[in-house]
Design a binder for these strands. Sequence first.
DNA 1: CGGGCTTTTGATATCCTTCAACTGTTGTGG
DNA 2: CCACAACAGTTGAAGGATATCAAAAGCCCG
Lengths: 273, 273
Amino acid sequence: MLGVVGYADWIHPSQQEGVTAMQATNAAAPAVTTRRVDPTAACALCASRLVGLCAPLDAGLLGEVAQETARITLAPGTTIFLQGDAARHVISLVRGSARLVRVLPDGRRCAIGFRFAGELLGYTPERDYPFSAETLTDATICRIDRRRLVDLFRLHPVIEGRMLDLCARELSATQDHLLVLGRFSAEERVAAFLFSLVAAQQARGRSATQLDLPATRADLGDLLGLTLETVSRVLSAFRRRGLIVLHGATRIELLKPQAVAQLARGEGPRAGN
Amino acid sequence: MLGVVGYADWIHPSQQEGVTAMQATNAAAPAVTTRRVDPTAACALCASRLVGLCAPLDAGLLGEVAQETARITLAPGTTIFLQGDAARHVISLVRGSARLVRVLPDGRRCAIGFRFAGELLGYTPERDYPFSAETLTDATICRIDRRRLVDLFRLHPVIEGRMLDLCARELSATQDHLLVLGRFSAEERVAAFLFSLVAAQQARGRSATQLDLPATRADLGDLLGLTLETVSRVLSAFRRRGLIVLHGATRIELLKPQAVAQLARGEGPRAGN
DNA sequence: CGGGCTTTTGATATCCTTCAACTGTTGTGG
DNA sequence: CCACAACAGTTGAAGGATATCAAAAGCCCG
């Protein structure tokens, strides 16, 4: 009954062009979308050595890892993998953005988080993926067979150490999100999201006041535990208060980033009580 | 302004007997509460080899790890470490239960989660602990210096692999909690908590219908993003509907565990819409 | 037995959701 | 090039779920 309308493009990947390649077995991967990466190129698992899995690797190891990977380009709104599917691959988002979503039996959706260029998705010790991953924009992903990655862990513990590091950081970010969903008001939640976008931009050396929302109001609602109407109302309120300017629906300019940051940290006016 | 009354016993550890030992440097740990563990004993980092860090270790490694650890007994309501403290130790909960809490500047509290015997807390790649940890019951913890643990990782990659496994599972559990806070009604949240207690009990081979709440209504509220009054009201409603029986305030008997489980999975009556 | 907590329950307030209508945008085909 | 359809966003009104405030009852421990 809830927000499922309009998501017809998020149906199972087997019905979508381009993703069928992903679901194919490793052995028979079609040449169209999947190809071996040139080992002399930069690590295919990483868009940026800063945030990726292979930051601590030297050139030799990079080449070795690159040989194990396959690069795939995906259209916006494509399912990368589906909640409940066998977790055969670990994916690195080389370009573009994606989101991780859990769906309840009655259609309620909850976005675990958004992922941006350079980040990793789909690593799990369980048999199946515990959530679905969908591209938000045009995206290039790089995938490696999970068993091969585990083999690499044995050969090069430094990669496993790096994975532990990424996992622990993601855990910390998820705990932050827990606080947002557990104790923040609608305004604080939206501010926290905008603030996290700023942080993601800054980590990639891009503008921190011009934000391109990667998602619809409904997507933001799923991420923040709100309805799309509430997200819209909050953004309007921010605009009226002069905190932001909306250029179209997706481009947001922060006029008072500090005020937003303050709200995002839960230090808003209500703290003055 | 919110729920800080009554938590006077959770002040900074430097003022508390027994915890001062924890905060002392490794070199000068007092003999009273801290002692070297007999290397021939079972791994001190683990209460149960099933859930602990050392499950994959053979006897020789176990002894080696045990030499690096110190065991400490704590009273209920003791701060194990404080949000913002330097993350010097990784802690294994050998006996008892604890909770992890984040506090906002204005006093709002959010519990990240509860931890039970055999679970690990305080591992972070950051410099400081991102949350506080407090014992809920009488507890025995086992701690290891973080740098020594990292050294152990180098020597025995299998331990690092185990840590990655634990971290990934905790991440998954935290994502589950995200769904609870983002999209569950008050009744579903309480049911989800009861259900998680059942799971924790079963994992330790104990009764799955007699639950001992490890916390006050306020604590549960912090964990579930509710107020203590709402928690109380929901439990009363469950009692009136015959789902549970309350023996005193902390002992709960599940009369219809399946109904609770159904609510906890978000498959409650509301799904029938 | 008394004091301090915790819990329960009630009344009221508030924030957010729900439902609904309307507007704006984008892409497509005539 | 425009009309139209489909979808995203905005805004309003009403309702509901949970918070807040308040008071009483239960429980533990000295």
